[in-house]
Design a protein around this nucleic acid. Sequence first.
DNA 1: TCCATTCTCTGACTTTAGTCAGATTCTTTG
DNA 2: CAAAGAATCTGACTAAAGTCAGAGAATGGA
Lengths: 295, 295
Amino acid sequence: MDTREIAQVRRFNRVVTQAVGALDQSYLERGRPLGEARLLFEIGADGAEARALRARLGLDAGYLSRLLRSLEAQGLIEVVPGRPDARRRRASATTTGRAEIAAYDALSDRLAASLLAPLDPARRARLVAAMGEVERLLSAAAVEIAPEPPASAEAQWCLGSYFRELADRFEGGFDPAADRSAPAADLAPPNGLFILARLGGEPVGCGALKRIDDATGEIKRVWTAPPARGLGLARRILDRLEAEAGRMGFAVLRLDTNKALTEAHALYLKAGYREIGRFNDNPYAHRWFEKRLAG
Amino acid sequence: MDTREIAQVRRFNRVVTQAVGALDQSYLERGRPLGEARLLFEIGADGAEARALRARLGLDAGYLSRLLRSLEAQGLIEVVPGRPDARRRRASATTTGRAEIAAYDALSDRLAASLLAPLDPARRARLVAAMGEVERLLSAAAVEIAPEPPASAEAQWCLGSYFRELADRFEGGFDPAADRSAPAADLAPPNGLFILARLGGEPVGCGALKRIDDATGEIKRVWTAPPARGLGLARRILDRLEAEAGRMGFAVLRLDTNKALTEAHALYLKAGYREIGRFNDNPYAHRWFEKRLAG
DNA sequence: TCCATTCTCTGACTTTAGTCAGATTCTTTG
DNA sequence: CAAAGAATCTGACTAAAGTCAGAGAATGGA
């Protein structure tokens, strides 16, 4: 990687840690340790499950339990057994708690404003725009792609969203039940593979491989959640699928697409796929592609 | 301030704290607490005075002393009485220490690279560019402007740099000794005021006010350090001088400039100054301006 | 020279953050 | 319904970070 790029990232880190770090410190103003403040803020007005809090803040189960107890003792939250699963406890803010959260919220607003305040409107607008760009691209870089059982709740959520989108966009609609081309079992080892893209634990995209014969695999279910589009995620999913396909011994990858999915055509062509004749009887397919894997 | 701008800043903070925070944690990899690691890194290959370290890291004197002792015990640094003032102790890295610093440096590089790694080259370039913009503008916003005794070392550094620049740019050069228009005493209360702009403690610009008569002040010595140009700093200095002038009871401000300083002309015109006839006998001045203060 | 001031050091603390090994409670599965 | 597994809780720790008061050295100015 370019030395100058790295140097820029490091300068950025330095400046931003200072600016944003000051913000963090200010949470102490309300006389509560940072850990508790962050937790309360994370619980928010809507409440949250202990499990989710642990994942989001990266806390030890014992430590979280203690923090919750402390917030409860301060009368800011109450923790009740969850439903339907009583083991998963749910924390939600009391009225006092909500007021306190609002106070932290106002504090955050004030501090964000104080970052911008010294700048004139034109520079302020430029800063905000650049922050948006950084935020979006850093998020993109933080997306993690990993194999996932196709039957998992998150995989199913992606597939469901994907199917709904197809139903929306295909001329004649789309009926998942009519698409017998890739039942979940075909997308799990040893015959296939399902991969999931996650951002901060939340699913934001997926893709799958399915065996056609020993040398040939098929790409299926490549999808990106709408808020994560424009970040090159589909391409990363495709690249990952190709790498996994190589590992699984496939020399050739095929796929089909519907004519409504124009951005998919562009993606596949750019990734080195060439159009071929119909190789399956998928009723929703209009175009078919193939790529010979290198190595 | 615009709600949407604030919301964007807060989203930015959230994402960046995550990304950069992970980076911070990685400093622990070398088996040394974060505080010590940061301190060692801050001492750097060139060494630093205890005083400066305390200021930069915001540490308690006792705490710093303990941290230094610990690094010393590890053979990474040595702390010796400073010269000429033996109270101001100076820490510098030993050979072992320098190697350790280099290791932290390499770690930082690796982690910066890992932020960029998942992105394709085009998006990577966009991210780096946006980071540059954010870094620069956040720095600009972090500049603090405050009154300063004109005789202080930092004020003198600014004036020295300013005079050197004038000597460079004026057609016939510039001789500070020949400019009797604003001796230091005239730029301090009650007759005047000197203000200094600082970024992270370092001076990056200055400006001054001088009394002409009870109702009239003169703007002098408005200067921005070259690395801080393009950030609207001169305008902020000017605005601050005007505010202070109002507080000092001046109703009118005047100033003169040399024809070589074209950017200064633009600044003054934009700030509402109008050109007037010669009001002094400054041999270096070619144009004269005046502004009536509001309120 | 003396005295106030500046800077650092030391000892004695406290608070925060975090870890880990069971114990407890609830749910799911055979 | 028993057993296994999941989620949380409790108690007993440790390490890191930070605070504060006072002591001690060095300096600058009267």
